[in-house]
Structures are given as C-alpha cells and as structure tokens.
Design a binder for these strands. Sequence first.
DNA 1: CCAACCTGTCACCAGCCGGTGAATAACAAG
DNA 2: CTTGTTATTCACCGGCTGGTGACAGGTTGG
Lengths: 219, 219
Amino acid sequence: MPSANAVLKKPIEMPAEPEKRVRNRAATEQAILNAAKRLLAEEGFQNFGINAVARGAGCDKQLIYRYYGGLDGLVEAIGTDLGSWVKDRIPDDTGGMFLLTYGDLMERLALLFLDALRADPLMRRIVAWEVSENTEQVRRLSEARSKALAGWIERMRGSLTPPKGIDTIGVNAMIFAAIQHLVLSAAVSGQCAGLVLKTSKDWEKAATALKRIVRGVYG
Amino acid sequence: MPSANAVLKKPIEMPAEPEKRVRNRAATEQAILNAAKRLLAEEGFQNFGINAVARGAGCDKQLIYRYYGGLDGLVEAIGTDLGSWVKDRIPDDTGGMFLLTYGDLMERLALLFLDALRADPLMRRIVAWEVSENTEQVRRLSEARSKALAGWIERMRGSLTPPKGIDTIGVNAMIFAAIQHLVLSAAVSGQCAGLVLKTSKDWEKAATALKRIVRGVYG
DNA sequence: CCAACCTGTCACCAGCCGGTGAATAACAAG
DNA sequence: CTTGTTATTCACCGGCTGGTGACAGGTTGG
C-alpha cells in the first residue's frame, strides 16, 4: 500500500494551454509502448495495468485496446522489442581479446551479462516477473528474452568447442542463475545472502568471486 | 428497483445446516495464519490480501485486523513462523558424515538447501517476493528468512575454519543465489536458462553441476 | 457539399480492494 | 434473570481496476 500515490490527479488544465494533441497514430503507439516499458522498469509488474499505462502515456486506455488489442498485445510488443536488447547493450565481439579457452569465453560472458543486467532495470523487472508468475503474458516475455540471450551466447561462442566431460549446460545454467539472482536481490535490497552490494567496490568483489567460480569449473 | 430492494435480509437459514462455528479465538487465529500461509504458498504474493485471507480462513476480515493488526502483522507472524522452518525441514547434523574440509561442508549445505527449497512452496514464494518488491512487509520477511538461514549455516559449520585466500562470503553468496534462482525458475517454468528441470533425473544432473561448481572453488 | 473514415475522449459499468463502525451471538459472572 | 465481556459477523464507504459503448473532431475522398 505504500505505493507511490503521490502524483495521480492532474491539476485542471489551464485554459490558455489546450495542449494540442496532434493526430498521429504512429506517435501515439510509440508513446504507449514507451510508457509501458518505463512503467514496468520503474514501478515493477505489481501495479502494471491498462489504466496505469494509459495514464503514463497521457492518452485514453481505449487506444491501448485499439492499437495493441489490450495489455497482452502490449506486453508482446515489449517482448518483440526485447530482441534488440542484446544488440544494444551487450557487445557482440570479443573486445579485441583472443579467447583461447572455453573458460576465457565463459568468464567474459558472465561479466558482460552481469554488467548488462545491472544497468537495465526493465530487464531486471522482467526476470523478477518470470520467477513470480506463470501467465501467458510472462511466458511470452520469458521466451523472447531467453531466445535473444541464447542467440547472443551462440554468436559469442563462435567456433570454440566446449570441454569434454563437463555438463556445460548445467554448469552454465547455474552461473547465469547466480548472476540473475544476485543482481535482482541487490537491486531490491542492496545485498544478497549476506553479501553487501552497494558500492562499486562491492561489485568488484562480486565479480572476483564470479570469476573464481567460473575458473574453478572451466580452468 | 423498489421490488428488488424489498428484501435485504437473507432468507431464513435452512435448519438442517446451521454450520456451527465454535467460539475459539486461539483456533481462529491459527486458522487465519494457516490460511495466509497456504494462500501465499499456493497463489503467490500477487493476489495476497486481507479479503483473500479472510475468505480462505472462512471468517470475517475484521478478525484479521483485531487479532493481527492487519496484513502487516499477519505477515510478521508468518515471518516468526519462518524461524522454525530451518529446524523442521533441514537436518541439523551432518548425517553421520565426517566433514573433513570446508568443501565437504559447502557441498552438503548446497545440496541440502536445494532440496529444502525445492520442497517448500511457501519459502519459494517468499524468495520470489523478496526480489520483486521492497516494502516493509517483504523486508521483515526477508530478514527473518536470512537470519534463520545464517543461523543454520553457522550451526552446521561448527568449528570448521574457512580456507584462506578465498572470499567465502562472496563465493557462497553466488552459490546460494544460483540455487535460489534455479529452484524458483524451475518451479514456475520447469526450466532455467535452457536447462530443463522436471524429472528427478534432471535434478540429479543439476545437483552434479552444483557439486562441480562447489568443488571447483573449494576443492 | 456531404459522407465515410480515423483518432482521440468521455462517461459509465460491474467488481474487487482495503478499511471501519456498529450490530449480533455466545458465554461467564453476579 | 441481568449485566458485561468477548468472539464473530454485517453493512457500508471511497477508490481503483479492467472493460465497453457512445460521441466529438479532424481528414480524406467522392
């Protein structure tokens, strides 16, 4: 209940400023999509709804039904957008490094993913949503996210072959799970399992621990 | 309209089904608490509210205000209950094994925690809640949980000293984060980062990967 | 010019939510 | 029986939610 009710009512419009709203469907669609992403990123999925999005976009909720077919369609549009996330936020090359071993690769991937997730509130909210609910909406989002991520990893892997005798799928799942929970927990409470995660120094220590784990498995 | 409003009172109860409700405050309190835990475990924190709990407990919501001081107090009561969780669900001894090294200990702790979390829907919902919201309610729950967990680890550790030169806090945070996210994701979608987690065979592979990680760090 | 669209707004509905004041029913003591 | 206490329920409020039908106004084309 202590949600941010601070700004709900808008004051009466000043008559001198009719705030002419241009008739432009494409722009409105974009405004709605942006409002949805912003709202989800900043407020989380708890109070995410038709009314809130319409309020945030400054238009009538009816338009959301018209242009996106309701909240489901809007969420799906967000998911489609998600595909470009990896492209925008995670480097696609090896940063000039030569990745000689699978361990080199995984260490780099882990650190890149950690930073990218840390810098993207929307993605964090989506991950939190994924482990909290199992509706069709979330399943779609989740699928889009995992697909984009898998593609990125595949691209980065290149022709590097995984080591024999190790269940790389299982181990990598553990590593990525660790990163996701660590970042989520830190974003909410500033710590995770007794490890404080606030200053950049804290995060350096976390990165060191992460490297240690990756190197422990892959050498 | 007037004819419809003519009768406000419910018709006379059927004499065959008085559904006698015993007057027993302690029992009612317990029923409320049980309903709250059950509801949270089964439905998640999304639709968790005064009305839902009262409905589930089969009593009026007013009693929740009276006996627990509202939802906050009720959640706090759940948190208090949580302290006994570790005691009930995770063995407190070493199961007859001699834990010679810190690696032995951490491997055992990790596997025990994995199984315990996997078997406890309520705890899973609380963990998911923790990474989704940052209200006072959740903070209290989170604190109770982490305190109980830390106590358990401390007890299990006994006189075993952690290895030098390793940031055990950081590494252990990673390990426990991995377990939590893995179990949460699996409970919701049956997989995690491409790793399918449905059959017990799947979980054995996950356990193996987990052991590999722990042993990779702690030897 | 009028007619047909398209964009956007408004008013309204039923339903649920958290929250509260008062009535009611069971019991205990005098 | 009367009185008081305690447990329990009831009735109602304002506010927000998702959802829909009707309407206003600009834009286009015949």
